[in-house]
Amino acid sequence: MLSLVKGIWTVFKHSIRKRETVLYPEEKPSLHPRWRGRIILSRDPDGEERCVACYLCAAACPADCIALQATQDEHGRRYPEFFRINFSRCIFCGFCEEACPTYAIQLTNDFEMGEYHRHNFVYEKEHLLINGSGKHPEYNFYRVSGVSVGAKDSGEGENEEPPVDIHSLMP
């Protein structure tokens, strides 16, 4: 019986506690930098699309919500002809971001994506592609020195930066 009274008293003491609720629309929640929200396609520092249409994101996607079609421009550079994410199926697991070899597909801090019609959840490339470079501002896939192939050595190709000195600690 005494424990019941003590329990009631404990609850009563909560009258003067601070409330835990975050009053959401007025007060935005603080999100961590790695929060997995709305997916975007980023561009490299030159303003070109980073995506090389390798299909790895679509292959990694457990919800099978990514659809794309690869094509090439006049320089033989691959880019997606269309890139479609169905956000009504997306589970925001971030596997696509992990799979992406060019840091093109990235998950952002935006989670306010409510829609009244389900077809509005299908985002096309024009909705996904942003003008910035997202989380990796300096990265440019086509400038990173590759491996040596028969025709060229590592870092010797057109527009390639010199290879990273793995023995140096300098950034």
Binding site: H14, S15, R17, R19, T21
Partner: peptide, 11 residues
């Protein structure tokens, strides 16, 4: 109930 459970209830 909201007050005693550190939340707001209908507001």
């Amino acid at each position: 109930l909201g007050l005693w459970q550190d939340r707001y209830g209908p507001n």
